[in-house]
Amino acid sequence: MRVKKIVLAVALIAAVGAQTGTALAEPDTVRIRDLGTLPGGTSSSVGAINDDGVIVGSADVGDRKSHATRWDRSGRITDLGTLAGYESSYATRINNRGVIVGYAATSREEHVRAVRWDRFGRLTELKPLPGDADSKPFGLNADGEVVGISGGGRGYRAVRWNRDGAVTELEGLGGDSWASAINDDGVVAGYSRRANELVSHVIRWAADGRSTDLTPNAEYSGRAEDINDAGTVVGVASPNAMRWDSDGKSTNLGEGQTATQINNRGTIIGYASAYPYRAGMWNSRGEYKALPGLPGEGDFLTAFGINDRDVIVGGSGLRAVRWDRDGRATDLGTLPGGSSSRALIINNAGVIAGDAYDTVSGGYHAVVWR
């Protein structure tokens, strides 16, 4: 089963947040909890959560360094360490077996290396392809397979690491390629360029590594953002949000939009790239619905995560928000005395994690809502 995660490089998306007729859910018993920081640090952040409620992310340890962290269900924090020769590390994915992936980084991330921790916290390096200096993971499935990129002087190449850590190149179109996500059947979504061309094509790799160009006639760049266990890929083929079914059939979800995540029910979340910059959702039939903001929270609205029950989390203005499957918004609140919060990820049990401003330390702390 795919564990929800934050989409890398998501920007704050503006939307109509305070509007007459905003649907609000009834108050419930969900409460915010500060997950704290590591010794010597003042801030922490979340990267992913599994269905057992184990959260991973990173926390600063002082001197401009950060270490990957894991919080168990009780909120106890563990420093996962980093590779020898690398100053920092970040945990970005966790599956339901407790396997974690992320990356180690040198100062200013001049070099990065993909890493994996087993359920006991033991660290393994995921090496790049021969001749490359760097590697970075973007996807993890239930079996512990990892996908991402290997990079060096020859550009970037999409790769897969098996459970034993062996790396294999996923053949692209001859130029740079990236692997964005992998489902539990080992099917991979990503994008690739032809040699000496700038236009990127959306690619799906089968479990055996065979590739299919989903945008063979592309005049403008596209990219895959996510894939579900049915093999449905979502992303963008500029300037349109797109969905590609497992048989290759494409659906245009709307001009000026980007689709960022899809769950196993086929529900998609994303955002518009032009004013009024609405964050919204598409159902499995491709029908779009704008998500409402919280009253009084201004014009900024984000949708960061969705679970398999169609519950969505994000932010409205400076407040973390949860939308139920009917689109009704719940204000998740902030830390005591705090001024801002964001809900970034949600698991299938409805546990939410994100970050919130802590007035004591003056930094943002990882938080959980249960």
Score class of each variant (00 low, 15 high):
Ala9Met: 15
Gly17Tyr: 02
Gln19Val: 11
Gly21Trp: 10
Glu26Ser: 14
Thr29Lys: 11
Thr29Asn: 11
Val30Phe: 12
Val30Asn: 09
Arg31Gln: 15
Gly40Phe: 11
Ser43Met: 08
Ile49Met: 07
Asp51Asn: 15
Arg64Ala: 15
Lys65Glu: 04
Ala68Arg: 02
Arg76Gln: 10
Tyr86Phe: 15
Glu87Asn: 12
Thr92Asp: 10
Arg97Asn: 12
Gly98Pro: 01
Ile100Ala: 02
Ala104Gly: 14
Val112Tyr: 00
Val112Lys: 03
Arg113Gly: 00
Val115Pro: 00
Asp118Leu: 13
Arg122Ile: 08
Arg122Val: 09
Lys127Ser: 15
Lys127His: 15
Leu129Ala: 11
Gly131Ala: 09
Ala133Ser: 14
Lys136Pro: 10
Phe138Asn: 07
Phe138Trp: 09
Asn141Ser: 13
Ala142Lys: 12
Val147Lys: 06
Val147Trp: 08
Ile149Glu: 12
Leu173Ser: 13
Gly175Ala: 11
Trp178Ser: 04
Ile182Arg: 01
Asp184Val: 05
Asp185Glu: 13
Ala195Met: 15
Leu198Thr: 14
Val199Trp: 06
Arg204Met: 08
Arg210Asp: 10
Asp213Leu: 00
Thr215Val: 07
Glu219Ser: 11
Arg223Gly: 06
Glu225Asn: 14
Asp229Lys: 01
Gly231Asn: 04
Ala237Arg: 06
Trp244Glu: 03
Thr258Leu: 03
Ala259Gln: 02
Thr260Met: 06
Asn263Glu: 06
Gly266Cys: 04
Tyr271Ser: 00
Tyr277Lys: 00
Trp282Phe: 10
Ser284Pro: 04
Arg285Ser: 12
Arg285Glu: 11
Lys289Phe: 00
Pro295Met: 10
Asp299Phe: 09
Leu301Tyr: 08
Leu301Asp: 05
Asp310Lys: 00
Gly333Cys: 12
Arg342Ala: 08
Asn348Gly: 07
Asn348Ser: 13
Ala349Ile: 09
Tyr364Arg: 01
Trp369Tyr: 09
Arg370Cys: 06
